[in-house]
Measured scan of single mutants.
Amino acid sequence: HDVTIHAGDKTIHVHGASEEFLRIIEQAKRDGIHEEELLRLIEELVK
């Protein structure tokens, strides 16, 4: 999957995102996670 995530003034493109990655991001959004926290989460996941 190619994913584009908008968080605040940043746009992150993730190529080859796994289903698990997508679920984590969707869950985080539903939980109302702060955008900066979401960015950190994404950066950890894509290392």
Rank of each mutant, 00 (worst) to 15 (best):
H1G: 10
H1K: 13
H1V: 15
H1L: 14
H1T: 14
H1D: 07
H1N: 12
H1Y: 15
D2F: 15
D2C: 15
D2Q: 10
D2N: 14
D2G: 13
V3P: 02
V3K: 03
V3W: 02
V3E: 03
V3N: 04
V3D: 03
V3R: 01
T4P: 03
T4D: 07
T4V: 15
T4L: 05
T4M: 05
T4W: 04
I5Y: 01
I5A: 03
I5P: 02
I5R: 01
I5W: 00
I5Q: 02
I5H: 04
I5M: 02
I5T: 01
H6Q: 14
H6L: 08
H6P: 06
H6A: 09
H6C: 09
H6D: 07
A7Q: 06
A7H: 09
A7W: 14
A7P: 03
A7N: 06
G8C: 04
G8V: 04
G8S: 05
G8M: 02
G8Y: 03
G8H: 05
G8F: 04
G8I: 02
D9F: 03
D9Q: 07
D9E: 10
D9N: 13
K10A: 07
K10P: 02
T11H: 15
T11D: 07
T11S: 08
T11R: 04
T11M: 10
T11I: 14
T11F: 08
T11A: 08
I12R: 01
I12Q: 02
I12N: 02
I12S: 02
I12F: 11
H13D: 05
H13G: 02
H13V: 15
H13K: 07
H13Y: 09
V14Y: 04
V14D: 01
V14N: 01
V14M: 07
V14R: 01
H15M: 09
H15G: 04
H15R: 07
H15A: 10
H15V: 12
H15L: 11
H15W: 07
H15N: 08
H15S: 11
H15F: 07
G16M: 07
G16C: 02
G16I: 08
G16W: 10
G16S: 07
G16F: 11
G16N: 13
G16D: 10
A17I: 14
A17N: 03
A17L: 15
A17T: 05
A17Y: 06
A17S: 04
S18G: 07
S18F: 05
S18A: 05
S18Y: 05
S18M: 04
E19V: 12
E19F: 12
E19P: 12
E19H: 13
E19I: 12
E19M: 12
E19K: 09
E19Q: 12
E19C: 09
E20I: 08
E20Y: 12
E20H: 09
E20P: 01
E20A: 10
E20D: 12
E20C: 03
E20Q: 09
F21C: 03
F21K: 01
F21Y: 03
F21A: 06
F21N: 02
F21G: 01
F21D: 03
L22I: 14
L22Q: 06
L22C: 09
L22S: 04
L22P: 00
R23V: 05
R23S: 06
R23D: 05
R23F: 09
R23Y: 07
R23Q: 09
R23N: 07
I24M: 11
I24N: 02
I24D: 01
I24H: 04
I25W: 09
I25N: 00
I25L: 12
I25Q: 00
I25M: 06
I25Y: 10
E26N: 09
E26S: 08
E26V: 06
E26I: 08
E26P: 00
Q27A: 12
Q27Y: 05
Q27T: 08
Q27E: 10
Q27N: 09
Q27W: 06
Q27R: 11
A28Q: 02
A28I: 05
A28E: 00
A28G: 03
A28V: 05
A28R: 04
K29C: 09
K29Q: 15
K29P: 00
K29T: 10
K29F: 14
K29D: 02
K29L: 15
K29Y: 13
K29G: 06
K29R: 14
R30M: 12
R30Q: 11
R30P: 00
R30H: 11
R30W: 11
R30V: 08
R30N: 09
R30I: 10
R30G: 04
D31F: 12
D31Q: 12
D31P: 01
D31G: 08
D31S: 10
G32M: 06
G32C: 01
G32P: 01
G32N: 08
G32I: 02
G32E: 04
I33W: 12
I33E: 02
I33T: 06
I33Q: 04
I33A: 11
I33N: 02
I33V: 12
I33H: 04
H34G: 15
H34C: 10
H34R: 12
H34M: 14
H34P: 14
H34L: 14
E35K: 10
E35G: 15
E35M: 13
E35P: 15
E35F: 14
E35V: 14
E36I: 13
E36H: 13
E36S: 14
E36C: 13
E37R: 09
E37T: 10
E37Y: 11
E37K: 08
E37L: 12
E37W: 14
E37G: 10
E37H: 08
E37M: 11
E37P: 04
L38R: 00
L38Q: 00
L38E: 00
L38P: 00
L38M: 07
L38Y: 03
L38T: 01
L39E: 04
L39P: 00
L39W: 15
L39N: 03
R40N: 06
R40K: 13
R40Y: 06
L41S: 00
L41D: 00
L41F: 06
L41A: 01
I42A: 03
I42Y: 04
I42F: 15
I42W: 10
I42V: 12
I42H: 00
E43I: 13
E43V: 12
E43T: 11
E44I: 11
E44M: 12
E44V: 06
E44K: 10
L45T: 02
L45G: 02
L45A: 05
L45E: 02
L45S: 02
L45D: 00
L45Y: 15
L45N: 02
V46E: 05
V46T: 10
V46P: 01
V46Q: 08
V46I: 15
V46C: 08
K47C: 14
K47P: 06
K47V: 11
K47T: 13
K47L: 14
K47W: 11
K47M: 13
K47G: 12
